[in-house]
Write a protein that binds this DNA or RNA. Structure first.
Lengths: 250, 250
DNA sequence: CGCGCTATGTACGGTTCAGAACGTATTTGG
DNA sequence: CCAAATACGTTCTGAACCGTACATAGCGCG
């Protein structure tokens, strides 16, 4: 009775293991062992704000599943995505970068799970130097590349190209070829009108690359998307892969 | 005789002291003393490429004067500026971030001087942790903010607003109100057509905010520019100032 | 001091996208 | 099972900006 109740109150499915986060998984065993007792599983519900502009963060989050968008919301209410993160990284770099907060905001774009770590504990570990610090900084550099390329893409490429880039970047962080996402939300991420997304998605659907209906998009032809996307996707992907390699790899 | 010759061979004017770089100036005396013997003054001639896309850098550069643009050049040849740095920071963050290189490029946009530090020495110092590491990371976070805001600005704001932002960001890194810059080069930085810059600059000139002629721009009314610029400038400036404050300041 | 290079001014058609309004279809919940 | 909410489709007008072409003006150098 009470067991059933407890199981209902907690998440129905047990959270995935922390090693499903690639950053944690790549740590040396000793480093990981020190972290493990302090890693606290938390759900990432759709739409949840991990942090708001200017928030002094109490934790960093290592996602095991799901996608988190970093975005900036302007005074007018218009917004633009700056970068996204999934199980390859973490959310809350401004903690170890020393600023404690940032002008941007982080929103769960696709529900999932994460392990969180208290800020003070992370800082102690970061200041040991070594592999954890190294991996966090390399991930941050990948994030920087993503932001830079977002700036370039916003300047020079069409909505359709940007939608392709966005779909591919999201897909790389999801286990299946399906994402639960309305066109309205995608438009907010790309910083364009919803109608623009409708039109671009229509083209992709006509071309047989995707299939969507009311908040659900399935990618049918990934190579086809890769053929349409601008170079920005490849730049980000290549750099992200490179920075995930063990240090000293060719 | 030989003294005269040596003086002629070297730069005509002596390079400014290293403490004119705010990052170096803010270091504790002991840290600065360790660095000083390894700081090598180098000129930053206009148009010089500090590093190219993918270069494995041998040095980091601490500018004392001048401006360096970080930009990305696309396959098509089109380009877009991602961030700029002057004497408040350094060029070559990918060294201590662990990636050794980046897909972007760094170009001297306004001539000046810098002190360079060998990569291996910088890495040893960085890995000591402490104040140098801390300051480098906080500067990097300011750079991240600048990139993020560039992405937002590229998405949502007009050429004229972006020109105002660009002028103000540049001005903040120069000793006078004059910058030597053609509209063509500004257009390359903003990633727009030269004609667009001509038109926007024309408006600003009519309004009495700037005065320009053939490669030279003088800002006459800075408050006027600040009244026209989008919020992006203030976000970047505020965050940059905040991250330059001593740690623990309110 | 004038020739030529480079920087800036101007104009035109075309495309992309914003803003706005409204219609249609699918889902949800009482 | 129907009403309301939500998601997507369509259309129109206008603004911003691009690509292009060409005209003018400042400046350096022989």
């Amino acid at each position: 009775m009470s067991r059933t109740l407890a199981a209902t109150k907690a998440s129905a499915v047990p959270p995935p293991p922390a090693t499903q986060n690639l950053l944690l998984a790549a740590l040396p065993a000793a480093d990981y062992a020190r972290l493990l007792p302090h890693l606290e599983p938390v759900p990432l519900p759709l739409g949840w704000s991990v942090y708001e502009s200017g928030d002094r963060m109490a934790h960093v989050f290592f996602p095991t599943e799901g996608i988190i968008s970093l975005l900036y919301v302007m005074e007018s209410g218009a917004s633009a995505e700056i970068a996204i993160t999934g199980n390859e990284g973490l959310v809350g770099i401004s903690l170890f970068m020393g600023g404690q907060s940032t002008p941007s905001r982080a929103i769960v774009q696709s529900a999932g799970h994460a392990y969180r770590l208290r800020a003070d504990f992370l800082m102690r570990e970061f200041e040991r130097g070594g592999e954890l610090q190294h991996k966090l900084l390399r991930f941050t550099q990948a994030l920087i590349t993503q932001m830079a390329q977002t700036a370039v893409c916003n300047r020079h490429h069409t909505v359709e190209q940007q939608l392709c880039r966005w779909l591919l970047l999201s897909l790389d962080r999801l286990p299946s070829n399906k994402l639960a996402m309305t066109q309205e939300l995608i438009a907010n991420m790309l910083g364009v009108r919803r109608e623009g997304v409708t039109e671009a998605a229509g083209h992709l659907q006509e071309a047989g690359l995707i299939d969507y209906r009311r908040g659900h998009i399935a990618v049918l032809d990934r190579p086809g998307l890769e053929a349409r996307v601008c170079e920005c996707y490849a730049v980000v992907k290549r750099e992200s892969d490179r920075l995930q390699e063990p240090v000293g790899a060719a």
